[in-house]
Amino acid sequence: MTLENLANTLREHPFLQGFTAEHIDKLAAMASEVHFGKGALIFREGDESSFFYLLLTGKVALETNAPGRIVRIVTLGPGEEVGWSSLTPSHSKQFQARSLEETQALAFDGVRLQHACEEDCRFGYTLMTAMLRVVAHRLQSTRLQLLDMYSPVS
């Protein structure tokens, strides 16, 4: 994908709504296109991977190891994000990510993103605001799952 194509793809991604053209160009320069085959592990729980992904096609599951089984926490698809913890000081992955279908994504090195945020505070604020939206949405969804609202007791 050329730099121009990357910028066009990024512009259409819901995560980047509200980003300026300059910010999009900055991100395009840091993006690389990646593909994961069906069933591929993108990262494992505990991995020191610092990559953050914007999903373009396919489906990815976040999973955790419970004793004797793997529990699927959430599935994510086009227009969503995987690996937001790469923007936190610890890069250790708390879940494992598995590609459930042929998946295409744009990958960003979290360390480079953090440096870019430190160098350009306005860019950093915009990126962290977008990230906060993702985290808040995930937190709300997790709370709803924990409510077990479909149970007869609820």
Binding site: I70, V74, Q145, Y150
Partner: peptide, 16 residues
């Protein structure tokens, strides 16, 4: 809300 490995569909709340 809770899916095992054999479930190929979506996992998460309906608003997702």
């Amino acid at each position: 809300d809770y899916g095992g490995l054999s479930w190929r569909g979506h996992v998460g709340v309906v608003t997702g």
